[in-house]
Design a protein around this nucleic acid. Structure first.
Lengths: 259, 259
DNA sequence: AGATATTTGTTCGTATGTATT
DNA sequence: TAATACATACGAACAAATATC
């Protein structure tokens, strides 16, 4: 597997076999390097030995290696530093970066509002349940400041829109606070989908005529209270009801806008 | 700063301003090209004009451009074809590519089994519910062939392991068939996490001593029956019970292995 | 502070592979 | 089969960044 520096046996380098499968050298090298990183158990911040990416060892040119490294860098797996003591380092990916990538995936055929809410209806309640009683003081005050942003009656269409987004931010806050990172990530992703959907943007920028706004606010105040009190079951059902209501609201507005 | 063979008209190429923000040329070029693609409204399969990526227009070398294109290719936004009539084409991202990306995100701190199952317990039942009564003949036979793979008693540890993976494949099949693409995607992602977790690999390769295997098989047969019959509620509860049982099984085995 | 060494970043000319005609 | 058009790969040289002496 490991190519040797002996120039005689030129070695059917690692890409040779796989190349027939139409995978290109940089991709194969990227996989190879990633593999070495994880099997060696390198963790964030550690330096990647330069031999691992040297043209001699890999039997490819520097340019090709650079393409491979570009992939890994784009993935957020590595970063590079110039200068002495510099080199390639294992890095960590930000959730936001990953979500942007996912947004890209659903750009061509965005999921419908019912599709998104099918997930939100079951996940957000779990999120709330997991948070009940385990919120720190900081997290609580952060959530409270989110609510303050849309406590007042909006005076303009623009403010209305901003308030709507702040409501989503409330949920983003919740997701960030979750002890279950995976759950938080998926919830965040769903929120990002909602934010990006042009259909939703249109809905959000519309004024909210009914008493919808108040009931929405009401939910969140009651939810926060339940979370503080550690009432797991109450938090769960509260959130579920909120999601059900939010979905029907969105759908209703969507059909109104379509005319 | 900019190497430019024509010192007269330095031409403030597009990367110039952003370069101060430490973003590297390939990244900027990738963004630039992506932007041109979406603003021009190019759709899948269409050819990208070669001027858009020519060294002359972009004022960078081919190598740098290739790094940029590598990013876009990895993102799944473009593919390249060699030969006459070849070139760069707009492509679509495969779910699998996106999932690989996500796997990467959780590589450094993988979610625990309870974390994963917190999601599976609520999502898989929804998946099953959405599938009830709407499966095509092809999809049903595909699911059935999945079950056949682990109908027989495993004769070796290796076969045991393969059967275990086939069980996951059953769920992957379900996820692929979902009319809700988003739901299918997330379920698939969770399955991929399970497959990759070293802890889970160890569990799967262990023999299954109790009657666990039978009950697992039993679930899936009953589930398939409910799906064919269009029994939404039954499918949902069946899957939920299955998930609960699977989780407790995994957790039990995990603590056994830790000793 | 300045020279130097080390490491990544970029360029450019050239060569090779591959699919179409 | 040969010519053609395109992507892919190579490698030597140069530029920029930065830690160390």
């Amino acid at each position: 597997m490991t190519p040797d520096n002996n120039p005689e046996e030129r070695s059917a380098p690692l890409y040779k076999t796989a190349y027939s499968k139409r995978r290109k050298r940089p991709d194969i090298i990227a996989d190879h390097v990633r593999d070495r990183i994880v099997t060696a158990g390198l963790t964030v911040g550690e330096r990647i030995p330069s031999e691992w990416v040297s043209p001699e060892e890999l039997h490819v040119s520097r340019g090709t290696i650079r393409e491979a490294l570009k992939i890994l860098e784009f993935q957020g797996l590595i970063t590079s530093k110039t200068g002495p003591g510099g080199g390639l380092f294992v890095s960590t990916i930000e959730q936001d970066d990953a979500i942007r990538l996912l947004d890209n995936l659903f750009l061509s055929n965005p999921p419908s509002i019912p599709d998104i809410y099918a997930l939100r209806k079951v996940l957000e309640p779990e999120l709330a349940a997991g948070l009940a009683g385990s919120l720190s003081k900081d997290q609580i005050s952060e959530l409270q400041s989110c609510i303050h942003l849309y406590e007042d009656e909006p005076t303009s269409a623009d403010e209305e829109y901003r308030q709507r987004l702040a409501e989503l931010d409330f949920h983003t806050c919740l997701a960030r606070s979750s002890p279950n990172q995976l759950l938080g990530f998926v919830c965040n992703f769903l929120l990002s989908l909602l934010r990006d959907k042009t259909e939703c943007r249109a809905i959000y920028s519309e004024p909210t005529p009914w008493a919808m706004r108040d009931t929405g606010l009401n939910y969140q105040v009651r939810l926060l209270r339940a979370l503080k009190a550690g009432e797991v079951q109450i938090a769960r059902t509260l959130m579920r009801d909120h999601m059900i209501e939010a979905e029907s609201f969105m759908i209703k507005r969507a059909v109104m806008l379509r005319r």
